[in-house]
Amino acid sequence: MTTTVPANRTAVVEHDRAVAEQADRHAVTLESILAVLRSDRLDDRAARAVSIEIAAASLVALRMESDERQGALVEPVVGAFARLRSDLRPLVRFGDLDVQFVEPPATGRALPGEVAYAARAIVRSAVLAFVDGGEAKRVRIQWDCDGLNLLIGIRDDGRGELTASDDSLRPIAERVTALAGELEVSSTPGWGTDLVVRLPLDPPAEPEPLADAVAFSPRERDVLRLVVSGARNHDIATALGISDNTVKFHVSNLLRKAGARSRAELVALAR
């Protein structure tokens, strides 16, 4: 079997994101099937029928994935939350975990596809961690939108021993960090854990180029361009028709204005 490699970085990122989301959804599907098979509310025949239904629904969703993604550049916040509830419905229905959903406001700003995907993945990871832990009986999931950020609140009634550095929260922390978001973990022994996540809806601003951020003179800009290219002082002097000492003077000014301690640091800042 041959695999086609995406031709550019954007396609690679989108491909990896699609694979990761499918893996997350399959994990929830498998956990849901296990919950059905373990449930004491269903006899063997009913458990098999429900398990087949869940598996079939997952296959249908997988086949529709490519069509859905064509319009996934943005998702209404209510629609993104509804999709999360749909993903978790079998697990909520047949598992031992009572999951309470607090709907986001219908007027909330639409979510970029990457944020909507990450938000669902964060909640799914948290729910699966609580299921694996076996201590929590109730989880409350809340989304809100302040116009600039998607705010996610997840609270359980477990042992209250989780910390931000806990291994079970590492996938969540990595997703939050990748989107320049914030994660707060607050635990109270015997009362449970609160996860508060803030995901910016807009990507962080690109840093201003050094040549635009600092008030260099036209000649200093010429010298900076050649320094960045790897040229030595003598080569810069020849290219600009100035003396070696003048080049040293300009380089010294560049270092001072840029706050760089070395030529290498100046190059790194400029790039």
Rank of each mutant, 00 (worst) to 15 (best):
G190K: 02
V176I: 05
S165T: 11
L199W: 08
P171D: 00
R175H: 07
R124T: 13
I152R: 03
R140V: 15
V185R: 04
D146F: 13
V185Y: 01
P200T: 07
Q142Y: 08
S186F: 13
D157Q: 01
L179K: 07
I141W: 12
V139W: 04
R138H: 11
D157A: 00
D156R: 01
N149T: 14
S186D: 12
S165C: 03
L199D: 06
A180T: 11
G190M: 02
L199I: 07
S187K: 05
V123A: 11
A126D: 14
P189E: 01
A129F: 11
N149G: 10
E135T: 15
R198P: 04
P171C: 00
L128F: 02
G181Y: 01
S186V: 11
T177R: 14
E184T: 13
V123T: 13
D157H: 02
V176K: 04
V197A: 02
G160W: 03
V131S: 12
R124F: 06
V131A: 13
L179I: 04
T193R: 03
P189M: 02
G190H: 01
D132E: 14
D132S: 14
V123W: 09
S186E: 12
L150T: 07
R170D: 07
V123N: 09
T163A: 10
E182V: 02
G158W: 04
E161K: 09
R175N: 05
L151F: 08
S165V: 05
V127H: 09
L199E: 05
N149C: 14
E182A: 12
S168Q: 14
L195M: 01
L195F: 02
P171R: 04
F130D: 14
V196K: 15
V196T: 11
R124H: 14
A136N: 08
V139D: 06
G158E: 02
S125M: 01
A164G: 08
L199K: 07
D132G: 12
G147C: 14
G133C: 05
G134E: 03
D194M: 01
P200M: 07
S168H: 12
S165D: 13
A126G: 08
A180Y: 12
G133F: 07
S186P: 01
V139S: 09
G133P: 06
A178Q: 08
I152W: 06
L183H: 00
D146N: 15
W143C: 11
A173G: 10
R170E: 10
G160D: 00
R170Q: 12
D167P: 15
V127R: 10
L179C: 04
L195I: 01
R140D: 11
D157V: 02
R159H: 09
F130Q: 14
E174Y: 06
L169T: 06
